[in-house]
Design a protein around this nucleic acid. Structure first.
Lengths: 152, 152
DNA sequence: TTCCGTTTTTGACCTTTGTCAAAAAAACTG
DNA sequence: CAGTTTTTTTGACAAAGGTCAAAAACGGAA
């Protein structure tokens, strides 16, 4: 575990290699709301940005190589090097667009289409992650995902 | 209309006063995916950031006062003043968290809860925006929203 | 192997929300 | 106002996906 809900996430991670996921609990059910793989930045954005306790847990799914930087170190870098500020701004643009697309898809495409598009975008995910985690990531029940797989 | 789909959005707007919405078409149906009110930044983020043609339309919902800046002017400012870079980065953080929350809500709360929470967060929206637009914003059909309202 | 715990699949049934069509209400317009 | 258009509501029905419970498959560890 990299982070447990309730604690404050003070570090930003970069995944050189490996896999992790962010999840939280909704009436005792685990909801995975993101996966991070090679070359992703991961953190509990809400906690890292606001300094409030995290609502999510971050778990390593396999042996991974991570780099990390603390909030204070990052702030120092941001003050010293405008290029870092720019890098971060551009990273946010990318993550914003990614989330926007995911949001639109979640609202207006069927569970089946979402699963197929996940397979296209991240085929390796199937071998690395349990079914139930993928289902909650897609916003559907595990049973429904199982039926979708059968139908393909 | 501030922007029509297919054209490239080259400006970032700031709403001093008024109301606007961004919407796109999905099988001939209008899907409103955001509203902008006082003190919001609005643009077609996807088009503005990537320079690709917009998939969305931006429409003024009432008489409004807007400020705007073009992509080139903004880039000039970003190069000249690191503080602007910082401002923008922080704005992105805010919008990212806002979108993240909306995403989580859309997936795991009922249509009724989403409507009630919208009423709490933006009570004025009801008087300013048509029902069908609110419904598509919440990701539900107009009929369902009508029934939800009846049940309250 | 065999046993045990976990994950995935299957079946039956239920709930939420969508769709289509029509009626009612509200908002414009001349 | 009366007439027209747009928006909202209502009803009947359909579809997608959820829930619960049980069976099957899988993956170690002894």
């Amino acid at each position: 575990m990299l982070l447990t809900q309730g604690s404050i996430c003070r570090r930003l991670y970069f995944v050189e290699d490996g896999a992790l996921r962010g999840y939280y609990y909704l009436d005792d059910k685990e909801i995975t709301h993101w996966f991070g793989f090679e070359n992703d930045f991961v953190t509990s954005f809400h906690s890292f940005i606001t300094g409030k306790p995290a609502v999510e847990n971050i778990q390593l799914l396999e042996g991974s190589i991570l780099w990390s930087i603390g909030r204070e170190e990052l702030d120092k870098l941001l003050n010293e090097f405008p290029d870092v500020e720019r890098l971060l701004r551009i990273a946010y643009e990318k993550y914003y667009l990614r989330l926007e697309e995911r949001y639109v898809n979640s609202q207006f495409t069927s569970a089946k289409d979402r699963y197929e598009s996940l397979l296209r975008q991240a085929p390796h995910i199937i071998e690395r992650v349990a079914l139930g985690q993928i289902a909650s990531y897609l916003g559907i029940s595990q049973e429904t995902l199982s039926r979708i797989r059968k139908s393909l």
